[in-house]
Design a protein around this nucleic acid. Structure first.
Lengths: 243, 243
DNA sequence: TAATAAAATTGGTATAGACAACTATATGTC
DNA sequence: GACATATAGTTGTCTATACCAATTTTATTA
């Protein structure tokens, strides 16, 4: 079995993960049934049992496998083809739904934030970037979005970034910080004049209002995002797991 | 340092986790700052470095710590006192918000499901329990809820269960299956006659409609739940993490 | 003083082995 | 046939060691 290459720069446990995933996909490891025991796998891949365990542990963490002491390790049902359980930007969300996102940037400026935003982002007297955008999917207006971002965290941020890439993509590729989590609050509302016009819906129609506060790995909040979606075109979908 | 007991039935890595958590809580390990290195900890607890690594790996998985190669292991900001990132029943959700839930059971019967429910729950010609309930929090109506549960999965289910405990609690204590995950779809709507009356709101008011499909560990769907919340009293809040 | 090189420190990967706890199967006994 | 018992197989826990890769700190050099 030459599936793992000891001289590869990729760690062996990673190569083993990929091989097990492949076998699950092609059906040689069936859902609900046990995969070979750790000892068998360590012989097959010619690595120590602990290395096999590391591969399996990662896959258990990702819920592809589950272990039962004394019985074996089993393939979990692959329920969610595309996982919908993470923090995503509007652009990423739309792409995942098979739609093409684009923006109309109404406002981009530095400003002193209001009290609420100041509290949420844990700011003193600092400035924030303020963006107001209309979000489109396949050229149909989908949401109106306001975003507040502390200037201190991204002093180099420029308007043109928001044309060419997702803000989240910018953070993860152009800066040395990374996104950890977000808290989202979702409520229903009725469209007033301010919402109806940009979304091309009637006043009195149902709208979905989502406030997201995003946090970096170091725990600092990096954005407050308030989005208003038209409810005839958008449903919020998410996968959750029992703790 | 006698914090870990080698003769305890609790594994040592678990005892070490608890000790590190305690130190984080009491402040001797500060958020954003590094904890002692793995080698130092292995000397301190008098265990091998791999055992310390297992403790730390679990805490990294649970997002209490994060590692940076060459720099150290750091205490993550404790953003979310009470995690809001799991699948919860209405009762659990309300208790977490500090409210007292109770039910008014309008309908409890066995029936042949409609086509949509049949597809979602992957049923043949089987029956489902059908429940319709008004959900109260602190004696105020909060939501109208319909639930479909395959009879085959819980043949012993009785009406009185829904008075005394959460359905999820029933599953986890009285049966040998366990809950794994759920997919939730959230949208905004306008209250019609059917919703306005039981929720004591006006027709035309905003409502939040949540459909939840719950899955067991073995991958089988065990419930379809359609809830209509009054939007003046209820916001859906959830924590999510970046994948 | 500033740039560079070397050393020390840290987490990342991997080995080989040991015993414990648990499950399923085969075996023997009544 | 029913029931206890041994046995083999599985994951769970832990050790002691080794080397690698990334980063920080210290020492050296220009």
């Amino acid at each position: 079995m030459n599936v793992v290459d000891k001289d590869s720069p990729l760690p062996m446990y990673y190569q083993i993960e990929e091989d097990i995933k492949r076998r699950i996909e092609e059906g040689s490891y069936e859902t609900g049934k046990p995969i070979p025991s750790e000892r068998e796998l360590s012989e097959k891949y010619e690595v120590s049992r602990m290395t096999v365990r590391q591969a399996i542990s990662n896959m258990v963490r990702d819920r592809l496998l589950y272990r039962e002491k004394g019985r074996g390790t089993f393939v979990a049902e692959q329920k969610f083809e595309q996982p919908l359980d993470g923090v995503t930007s509007f652009s990423e969300d739309m792409k995942r739904r098979g739609l093409s996102p684009h923006n109309e940037l109404l406002v981009f400026e530095k400003m002193i934030p209001d009290e609420t935003t100041k509290d949420i982002l844990a700011l003193g007297t600092e400035e924030v970037y303020y963006l107001k955008r209309i979000r489109y999917a396949d050229n149909e207006p989908m949401a109106v979005e306001e975003t507040f971002i502390p200037v201190r965290l991204f002093p180099e941020l420029e308007e043109k970034v928001f044309g060419v890439m997702s803000f989240y993509e910018y953070i993860e590729t152009k800066t040395d910080v990374s996104i950890r989590s977000a808290r989202q609050t979702i409520e229903a509302g009725i469209a007033g004049e301010d919402e109806a016009a940009p979304l091309a819906i009637d006043e009195g129609a149902a709208i979905l209002q989502i406030e997201r506060i995003g946090y970096l790995t170091n725990g600092l909040p990096f954005e407050r995002n308030i989005s208003t979606y038209r409810s005839d075109r958008y449903k919020f979908i998410s996968d959750m797991y029992r703790n």
